[in-house]
Design a protein around this nucleic acid. Structure first.
Lengths: 298, 298
DNA sequence: GGCATCCATAGCCGTAGGCTATTACAGCTT
DNA sequence: AAGCTGTAATAGCCTACGGCTATGGATGCC
């Protein structure tokens, strides 16, 4: 009788791509027959034809055109409901969930915790690791309340952020690499080397850690890694090299990887992010505590 | 990952009833364990506790309270999307779906069809019977575009209507009944007789055809019937009697039931109904055609 | 004409959503 | 105190549905 919200997402994907095959494989990551079946089922549920398929092309019917903006709105409201439900729960339980992708270190958490003890007594922090493949670091789905992350974040996704710290970018190399002999490395020497990249789904962060803006031509991507550990394993195995912030060098110290500072690159910015419409005290206090941590007292 | 819209309905029902058992059996017509399981699943999906159950009572958590109005809004938008999608489809295909509960007769349809041929060439009418148990005659779910129905309709459900015809109420009796001997019957003589009623879910129509407003005490309901045919079978079987509009006497003529006019009751009103926000030309034209059918020319 | 592309169909499988029966507990009533 | 009632949770079962792969048929392109 009622559809699933997921079916509305399916519909939106097909309506936007105007192709079952592409919507299925590129956006929804399901098989094309499964998508066809589900759309047919949605059509049966609504007793309406949503698409005209004439063997070669897919077009929206009047009914489909009417449904599309409404489906978008419903999905939008649902995402919002998820977020605000999670926020209400977190507020009631006095738990602030902090998302992170790589280990934070830098003494940030102890300092922040101390500051929070004053402003938010009996609140607790909960840490949740988020894969690079989620460019909103769990904020979009309401999985976390705030996130410690490297910038930039994708634009126009309703996220706000402030910079916590600025750090030079270093490069991770296998110990035997020719560049491991010297001390610092000019970035120009790296542009033809193979790199270990973040997944495409990581958004602008992938470009940043490939230093795509500073290259004359696209980087050679030797492999993609989902986590920092995976990246360093790949580096140690000699697959390629990877950029990382200076502060992570101590955190990820290991025998089979050496780190060298890179010249000629803009520094990386560590930030704290939150959902723009989220005006809760706890979020504001946490953000301020983070920002004040390295930039002197409040 | 995403919930089903049905799960939101489940949640709303439990939140409003504050009881799994009652919500399950009275409103959702599923078993209590199934409802419990689904609510738990919704909670797992949102990673939040929606209800505090302390063995005896169920209360909303802060998260539940945050979700409730948003869930209502989403369901509302979904209903609206269904309706407007159906409307767009009907408009594109030039098909107007007419809901009805009992046979219409009275020469209404031929007359209306003639009038429509002028104003809406190449539109077709599609008729769909709707059970008495849907008090919106299929309009709420978008199953029909307009409906021919007896008044009154439930209030505040976004439906508009106009009166097509006014008819005296008659009574259907088994042939051997003492009141079948005379010609007309005063309603006062019927108030202690057992009646065949429409289902409770039919809304105010049930009261109207029991003439509840004209009784000193509630009617004796011998049985409930889902359709006109069922009602007359019950009357023929001697289970009780039933009121009906004068015009239906000819339509439902049969050997084992006799009909007599009833004095002392306000007349019944046959109406044409549509969704108030539905401003389509086709609907307006159809409504006008119906109204003009017995009330003289437009 | 052959190939590539795209949607539909067929058939299979695992999970999820429903059911009944039962348990556990709280608040009454006797 | 014992038992009854009412409510939610648990256990175990079955079906239906949402996903998959493999394949078919039609269309546009080289």
């Amino acid at each position: 009788m009622d559809a699933r919200l997921q079916d509305l997402r399916y519909f939106i994907a097909v309506a936007e791509e105007l192709s079952f095959t592409r919507a299925a494989s590129d956006r929804l990551f399901i098989s094309q027959p499964a998508l066809s079946k589900q759309i047919r089922q949605l059509e049966a549920c609504l007793r309406v034809t949503l698409f005209d398929r004439d063997r070669r092309t897919v077009t929206l019917t009047a009914a489909g055109a009417a449904l599309l903006p409404r489906a978008r709105r419903i999905i939008e409201l649902w995402e919002q409901a998820r977020q605000e439900t999670a926020e209400a729960s977190a507020t009631q339980r006095a738990i602030l969930t902090v998302g992170f992708q790589t280990r934070i270190g830098r003494g940030l958490i102890p300092t922040v915790t101390d500051r929070l003890a004053d402003a938010l007594p009996n609140w607790r922090l909960l840490f949740r690791q988020v894969p690079w493949s989620d460019p909103s670091i769990g904020l979009a789905k309401g999985a976390v309340d705030v996130a410690i992350t490297w910038l930039p974040l994708p634009r126009d996704t309703g996220l706000s952020w402030r910079v916590i710290a600025t750090e030079q970018r270093w490069v991770a190399l296998p110990p035997g690499h020719r560049l491991a002999r010297g001390n610092a490395v000019p970035f120009a020497e790296l542009i033809d080397e193979p790199f270990i990249a973040l997944p495409t789904s990581a958004g602008p962060l992938r470009e940043f850690w490939l230093a795509a803006a500073d290259r004359p031509r696209p980087a050679t991507v030797a492999a993609e890694a989902e986590t920092a550990e995976e990246t360093l394993e790949a580096v140690a195995a000699g697959l390629g090299m990877a950029l990382l912030p200076a502060g992570n060098v101590e955190i990820y110290q290991r025998d089979d990887v050496v780190y060298r500072p890179v010249h000629g690159l803009s520094p990386g910015e560590l930030g704290v992010a939150w959902r723009s419409p989220d005006r809760r005290d706890a979020v504001r206090v946490f953000v301020n505590a983070c920002v004040g941590c390295f930039c002197g007292p409040d």
